[in-house]
Design a protein around this nucleic acid. Sequence first.
DNA 1: ATATAAAGTTAGATTAGTCTAACAATTTTA
DNA 2: TAAAATTGTTAGACTAATCTAACTTTATAT
Lengths: 218, 218
Amino acid sequence: MTLKTKENYLKAMYMLAEEEGVISLSGLGKRLGVSKPTVNSMVKQFQHEGWVEYQKYKPIELTSQGKKEAALVIRRHRLVEMFLVEKMEFGWEEVHDIAEEMEHVEAEILFDRMNDMLGNPAFDPHGSPIPDKNGNVLSRPYLSLSEMRRGDRVVVKALRDDNKEFLDYLNGRHIRLEVEMLVEQIETFDKSMTISIEKEPSLNLSKEVCDRLLVERL
Amino acid sequence: MTLKTKENYLKAMYMLAEEEGVISLSGLGKRLGVSKPTVNSMVKQFQHEGWVEYQKYKPIELTSQGKKEAALVIRRHRLVEMFLVEKMEFGWEEVHDIAEEMEHVEAEILFDRMNDMLGNPAFDPHGSPIPDKNGNVLSRPYLSLSEMRRGDRVVVKALRDDNKEFLDYLNGRHIRLEVEMLVEQIETFDKSMTISIEKEPSLNLSKEVCDRLLVERL
DNA sequence: ATATAAAGTTAGATTAGTCTAACAATTTTA
DNA sequence: TAAAATTGTTAGACTAATCTAACTTTATAT
């Protein structure tokens, strides 16, 4: 199996486990853009390599080895994103696709140097934690903005999504990490929120947007 | 055909044409570490794509399209090398292998940004010219140190090789680009040279080393 | 509880890039 | 110039990663 294939499958499995709680064949297929039979045969190979635990018709589980290797791919991805934003003046909406390519570069020393130049950063430009060199990750106790109530004051800490369209939307409304917001109103019928940011006009954010904003209560 | 394969073959062909004047099937095979039948079948595909001109038993020739695409791969390689040395404090002996990986990253914008941060550099850390965005390259009128005569004063301008062992050897003797040398002696029997660098003890350089040092007469 | 939908599986085919073995053409050298 | 060496070609096989078609198992929904 090629390294890139291995890395892409492991990363997808790791993220599915995080996001959906479970790794299904079809979820993995959709995520990777491949058919179910393809995933099925690949998963058997991953099991053979000791990266997943798998039984017919049961959900897939990453072994600790698999988790670690996946976390190291994610480490490279997030370090690259941070490097691009901090050292090369890219916007947070530009870096995902570049990092997607660079995470597969076989040059440990390059990522170590990025890490050093960035001072061993704990989070990427979207607020996601950067796993350490052993594949250990800080868990984030953040809540989604949609769980807040009227009158809550919060700080934006991370995003659930680093999709370019979403980031462009946030840029257009001056929503960045560490921005402070006040929840002014919540519409009961569509769950949209009216929020205000210091020195800016109030904004209405749809449920979809609120779900994707991870915040800390002040 | 995958992009990486295409890029590796084109680059190898381009460099062979430069170094040997001709692109042979076996030369290409050796360079790429693949068998002759493999090269043979790939070259047919390259011809079909319009990147090479080829007839049975004749040497391979790159079309202008092929040359341009090859030069753009080399551009990325050399830009990366320059970026690593100038912006990330790598040594000139460390960057080849990393650049070999990074040249295949599909992110035009990344290389453009490197180019901007470096001020559109004309040469890489080993003195090789960086092709421009159209694939045009400056030709270098440098001579090899081994062509010099006793008493000549020269400046080191580039290297014929960026092999790590060679660069480590040069590092150990404080030979860098722009260093000035005086040819003190040439041994007739093995063509080795005794040269001196300002404020350093005299050095004896073998023919192999002299061949690889490209200089300009003062 | 059964029909329908969704998820998973199997079989068999395909493509890219590679190989070895055997042979043919060309070039070099004695 | 003939033998030897090198270079190039053909045929046929292999592996990784993918697909579609057909089928089975499990989950969901009236």
